[in-house]
């Protein structure tokens, strides 16, 4: 009797979650999936087809854009990691407790405004008639304003800036569990600073690095605003291509196919990444 009551309560509480998952995630995706297999025959009649997926591989522009996007997302992830590691190390191990809270808030602060505002903020700083150029001209460092916007490096910087927090937070949480005495023990056993980083800190932080990297990679891959606004004229991002298919070309079938390709290919990349570093997703998630 008791068991029965418990079971009913269990389903009662679980059902909103299941409904939410089903209605808002599963159904639209099934709809999109079906859409991606639809097309038009030469006569203009709707038919089932694999053409939308074929297009991706036949048309070099599409997979080139995807490769480019994936590569840049990886570079972004790597740069974010390189920057986030010392930052989180400082916050966890070196800063005094009071400064720690302050620094964490400082990291969170940019996220109180929308991404659009943040990107515009960068644009005001970096543009040819912007703040940086103004001061550099004033101080005589340069005699011609330089355009710092609209190139790949700026775009990656923007992406790194946007992703920082998502790398720092998991790193902080794994680093908190790193016993200081491990670092000291390594130091005592004649390890240099670099050795300690390589053999103790990074292996210990691996789960945090992996989960942070997955989040940052997916965020960068799925970003639309930053590449579009800061990247300038060469920065075709794969999300933009999906947007274009849906909005500009009215080709929802192609757009849906691209959406699924993005999902599948990014999952494959992450899977390969986990294999190469010999980890599994369950470990990382816990």
């Amino acid at each position: 009797m008791m068991g029965n009551g418990f079971r009913i309560t269990f389903w009662l509480f679980l059902s909103p979650v299941l409904l939410w998952l089903f209605l808002l995630i599963v159904i639209p995706h099934i709809d999109l999936l079906l859409l991606s297999f639809r097309g038009e025959s030469d006569m203009g009649d709707p038919i089932w087809t694999l053409q939308n997926y074929k297009n991706f591989f036949i048309e070099p522009i599409y997979w080139y854009t995807f490769l480019r996007t994936a590569l840049y997302a990886m570079i972004t992830t790597f740069c974010t990691f390189i920057l986030a590691l010392p930052v989180s190390f400082y916050i966890v191990k070196l800063a005094r407790p009071r400064t720690r809270g302050f620094l964490t808030v400082l990291l969170l602060l940019p996220f109180w405004v929308s991404e659009l505002v943040r990107v515009y903020g960068w644009m005001i700083l970096l543009r040819e008639s912007g703040v940086f150029n103004y001061f550099m001209l004033k101080m005589g460092i340069i005699d011609q304003p330089i355009e710092m916007l609209y190139n790949d490096i700026t775009m990656i910087m923007g992406l790194v800036y946007t992703s920082m927090l998502f790398m720092v937070v998991p790193l902080i949480s794994v680093m908190e569990s790193l016993d200081d005495s491990l670092i000291e023990a390594a130091h005592d056993l004649e390890a240099s600073r670099f050795d300690i980083l390589r053999t103790i800190i990074i292996p210990h932080c691996k789960p945090g690095i992996t989960s942070g990297s997955i989040v940052v990679f997916m965020l960068a891959l799925g970003n639309y605003l930053t590449p579009n606004l800061m990247g300038g004229k060469n920065s075709l991002w794969f999300t933009e291509q999906i947007y274009n298919q849906f909005i500009a070309s009215f080709n929802w079938n192609q757009g849906a196919a691209f959406g699924f390709l993005l999902l599948v290919l990014s999952s494959v990349i992450i899977w390969v990444g986990l294999k190469v570093t010999r980890q599994n997703l369950g470990e990382v998630a816990s």
Binding site: D179, S181, A185, H187, D188, E190, H204
Partner: peptide, 20 residues
């Protein structure tokens, strides 16, 4: 002289064996 250059070694209170 930093710890990694001293001819002494320390067994830590909680041993500090490297779990990885």
């Amino acid at each position: 002289v930093p710890p990694n250059k001293r001819p002494v070694n320390l067994v830590f209170q909680h041993l500090a064996l490297f779990p990885m």
